[in-house]
Write a protein that binds this DNA or RNA. Structure first.
Length: 583
RNA sequence: GCACCCGUAGCUCAGUGGAUAGAGCAGUGGAUUUCUAAUCCUCUGGUCGCAGGUUCGAUCCCUGCCGGGUGCGCCA
């Protein structure tokens, strides 16, 4: 990575110039914000100037004089208030380019210390269809898992499905009293949902129904054979459907350890926490309270009310003896730490659950868990009114519905092109473009901001969209299809045209971008980068004929195409987006 | 009441303690008998919610306010 190498050189220059660096100071080199000045830049002289009370420009000149970068840069300049600007040399860029075009890791170095990372994402509920609300967790989680794995971590993906809970009282009651077997066979989830909705409505009208549901739930929890069988069938039917959706989306999990998996661990866990004094009885329930180890404003177990800090406990056992979300999460952490030796656990779950995770993480730490637990939060998907989509009010849009519509629109566009592709080929192209469009629409956004759900944005085929990126890839493949015979991409390369140079620099930045994504768990950095790369390639493509050129120029351009092709395929793959050879 | 997230172009959204704040859509005017136009190139469009503060430098950090969203003991 140029950025890392230049940082090292800068560090060396400080020593060579005899500059005493203040404690904790490391020079920062970044990709240039304005390409007129260079390819990379550093503000180290300005930061240092402040701390050493020295003139930043003079300091920059002093550093520049001590800098040894002849093998990398054709030019280093001091500009403005004291910026050091680096312009890469053509040979250095060409060498890097050859590396990208011939390397399976496309020039992205692996991490020095590989960690075991458990990624918890998607987590749909049994007997409920996935809706647009699941888009964020599913796509962000899948992408982060792919990226972490790509740069060398050991990644374990776990779909913590909601297969246990109070809703099963209603579903079992409905199953017994009003299930339509024919409809169940035709569309299991749809039938389960309508049964659930009907019973849910009935409970609101009639308390007796509610009581029946509660007793069905208790029977299930006590291991009643009939109810257990119904529950298992619900889980089986739902998972079967989920697998189909995940298959269409090209998403795989290493494990499907749902909430029910941890049932037997809950009672002992609560007992253990009581015994250790981490949990206590309160108003009939068992809760975790503050231990006063942190400042009140940082304590997840305290809340301020009228200038007084009041308890905001985390309940792990209800007064009726039942267990909760937090209890299951604590048991899940135990399992992941013990069985998988997780160094880190990433929870890709919506921002509204921030308090829950702060409490759970704090409770786990008190139990001696040292694993780094991170809540990778994301904003809500809003309806047209700017308010959250509500799951239960029926206002939401089904995930499958969105995907199918996207595939259909992509298919229409493919049909309009007339390039002699078979129906099967067009179907596959439409699937890749349709699912890619929905994924890209999600992943190109900052995960923390709320956004309004928009069919047009999800399904658009122009502009900053998956088809735009895929088209750039298709253009690279088209060139190699037309090429006669094998090419060697190892001969001499020379970058002459400005468009060639811009593309080469962009390609070199893939490594930096990929690593940066994991600093803040933000896949949109990669999405934005790939859009810029595609844009740069499209411009290059218009400006620089490849097959019609000759000699070194032709070889250079072919190498640029091959490198672009690999970076796009790899980069899109890291977003969970597949590619096609034609479109 | 308290806490967290958000407020950037007509719309939807990027962005960073640095140099003249970007993109897509919409609007405008061009480019192709194509290495695939699902493309490229022009132009138009901004008091980065408001007010202070810190800094050589603030859209970014701090404080206060205004506006929107979310969460806060027995759902998950």
């Amino acid at each position: 990575m140029f950025r890392a190498v230049l940082t090292d050189r800068l560090q060396a220059a400080f020593s060579a110039a005899g500059l005493a660096l203040p404690e904790g100071f490391t020079p920062a080199v970044v990709i240039a914000s304005d390409t007129r000045f260079g390819d990379y830049q550093s503000n180290a002289a300005m930061v240092l100037g402040k701390q050493l009370k020295a003139n930043p420009r003079a300091l920059a000149e002093q550093i520049k004089a001590a800098l040894k970068v002849e093998d990398l840069c054709e030019k280093v300049t001091v500009d403005g208030p004291g910026f050091l600007n680096f312009t890469l040399s053509s040979p250095a860029l060409a060498a890097k380019l050859g590396g990208i075009a011939n390397d399976v890791q496309v020039g992205v170095p692996s991490v020095v210390k590989a960690k075991t990372i458990v990624v918890d994402f998607s987590a749909p509920n049994i007997a409920k269809p996935m809706h647009v609300g699941h888009i964020r967790s599913t796509f962000i989680g899948d992408s982060l898992a792919r990226i972490a794995r790509f740069i060398g971590h050991k990644v374990i993906t776990d779909n913590h499905v909601g297969d246990w809970g109070t809703q099963f009282g209603m579903i079992i009651h409905g199953w017994k009293t009003q299930l339509d077997q024919a409809k169940l066979k035709a569309d299991p989830i749809h039938e389960l949902v309508s049964v659930y909705k009907a019973v849910n409505a009935a409970t609101k009208a009639d308390d007796a129904v509610l009581e029946t549901c509660k007793s069905e739930l208790v029977k299930l929890q006590q291991g009643d054979a009939e109810n257990l069988a119904i529950w298992k069938e619900c889980v089986r039917l739902t998972l079967e459907q989920l697998e189909k959706v995940y298959g269409t989306l090209d998403i795989k999990f290493d494990h499907y350890l749902g909430e029910s998996f941890y049932n037997d661990a809950l009672a002992p866990l609560v007992e253990d926490m009581l015994a250790q004094g981490i949990a206590q009885a309160s108003e009939g329930a068992i809760v975790v309270m503050t231990d006063g180890s942190v400042k009140p404003e940082d304590d997840p177990f305290l809340i301020k009310e009228k200038d007084e800090w009041k308890a905001a406990p985390c309940i792990i056992r209800k007064s009726d003896g039942g267990f909760l979300y937090a209890t299951t999460d604590l048991a899940t952490i135990d399992y992941r730490v013990k069985e998988w030796q997780a160094d880190e656990i990433w929870y890709v779950v919506g921002a509204p659950q921030q308090l829950h995770f702060r409490q759970v993480f704090a409770a786990a730490k008190r139990r001696g868990v040292t694993t780094l637990m991170t809540h990778i939060a994301f904003g809500s998907i809003l309806g047209p009114d700017g308010k959250m989509f509500k799951t239960r009010s029926g206002e939401t849009v089904g995930l499958l519905e969105v995907i199918e519509e996207a595939i259909e629109r992509a298919r229409e566009a493919a049909d309009a092109k007339e390039q002699g592709l078979s129906d099967a080929e067009k179907d596959e192209i439409a699937r890749v473009i349709g699912t890619g469009s929905v994924k890209y629409a999600e992943l190109s956004q900052n995960r923390l901001t709320d956004y309004k759900f928009s069919w047009d944005k999800m399904l658009s085929l122009q502009g900053n969209t998956a088809p735009y990126l895929l088209n750039a890839y298709v253009r690279t493949r088209s060139i190699f299809r037309k090429l006669d015979g094998a090419v060697t991409l190892t001969s001499e390369l020379t970058l002459t045209d400005p468009a060639e140079r811009l593309l080469a620099i962009k390609l070199a930045q893939f490594a930096e971008t990929t690593h940066d994504v994991l600093l803040d768990h933000k896949p949109n950095l990669l999405a934005n980068y790939l859009f810029e790369l595609a844009n740069t390639y499209h411009s290059f493509y218009e400006a620089c004929p490849v097959l019609k050129s000759e000699g070194t120029m032709r070889n250079t351009r072919l190498t640029l195409c091959e490198a672009t092709s690999r970076v796009l395929k790899t980069g899109l793959g890291l977003l969970g987006i597949q590619t096609t050879e034609r479109m």
